[in-house]
């Protein structure tokens, strides 16, 4: 976990340690409820969003933006157009709440397999690919600036 930004590592460890599937789902639903906190403001992007912001493979129509900060780090914003895309919202909130201010070198290396630590190994292939796609977009924004 040393390569993962500290705040993200803490969240992943906390959620991964919940062995009860239903309890874990409750935590993830509560996390998704905070989506407005990471939703892209109109000052950053307005609909219709450009396709290059769209997360590949995500069935919930997720989009990712990164805004450069004066200290050289990034602030991430998201949108999920499918109102039923709760998992995509939860993934976005986890990344949005933990990656602000993190070193770009670490953000570029956030492992996509944290999806399975957060959501469990039993999620469907398509769902897993979509959630990993959100992480890949975030990684790429950091890589572009390194």
């Amino acid at each position: 976990m040393s390569e993962i930004p500290a705040k993200l590592a803490e969240v992943v460890t906390d959620i991964e340690s919940i062995s009860d599937r239903f309890e874990r789902q409750e935590i993830l639903i509560e996390t998704a409820d905070r989506f407005d906190g990471v939703r892209v403001p109109e000052s950053v992007a307005a609909k219709p969003y450009p396709e290059e912001r769209r997360v590949p493979a995500c069935e919930s129509d997720a989009f990712v933006w990164a805004v450069d900060q004066p200290d050289g780090t990034l602030k991430f914003y998201f949108d999920v157009l499918n109102p039923q895309g709760l998992s995509a919202m939860a993934m976005s909130v986890i990344l949005g709440e933990t990656l602000d201010g993190a070193p770009l070198e670490q953000v570029a290396k956030v492992p996509t397999d944290i999806v399975f630590k957060l959501f469990g190994k039993e999620i469907s292939m398509g769902k897993g690919a979509g959630l990993m796609g959100i992480i890949s977009m975030v990684q790429n924004e950091a890589k572009k600036r390194l």
Binding site: Q25, A32, K127
Partner: peptide, 9 residues
């Protein structure tokens, strides 16, 4: 569902 969080929500 495709999304496992929907039913419990």
């Amino acid at each position: 569902n495709e999304d496992p969080l929907l039913y419990p929500s």
